[in-house]
């Protein structure tokens, strides 16, 4: 499922930043350098970013501006990274967060 906006009447939606590879739960996906990690994942149809601590419920994009932390993931070994405000860099290793880790 590709959710990129590929044409638009008003916006220039072509992302000129280079396509790089990142790893998500062991799978390699392509992402534009500098775009929020969350956007890169969403464009590949990945909508679950973490599972809650107590009830193990899935969470995903909710506020999109770094306030709610529902999109937190483990990025390069560091947990609780808000993916909606963290830019993609080549070679990043991203994992769905389970509880606090």
């Amino acid at each position: 499922m590709c959710l990129r906006v590929d044409e638009h009447c008003i916006l220039d939606v072509e992302n000129k930043a280079p396509l790089v590879e990142i790893s998500v739960d062991g799978n390699t996906i392509k992402a534009h350098e500098g775009e929020p990690i969350l956007a890169a994942l969403l464009s590949n149809g990945i909508k679950v970013n973490r599972y809650t601590v107590k009830k193990h419920e899935p969470r995903g994009l909710f506020c999109g501006i770094g306030q709610c932390s529902d999109c937190s993931m483990v990025v390069d070994g560091k947990a609780n990274v808000r993916t909606c405000i963290t830019p993609v860099k080549a070679g990043m290793v991203i994992k769905t967060q389970d509880g606090l880790k």
Partner: peptide
């Protein structure tokens, strides 16, 4: 309401207009 796919309207707007990714179909 916490199910992935439920979000703020502003979050959806950020995705489409800034990141050029659709939140869903």
């Amino acid at each position: 309401w916490t199910t992935p796919g439920v979000m703020g309207a502003g979050a959806a707007q950020t995705m489409i207009n800034v990141n050029h990714v659709k939140p869903g179909k």
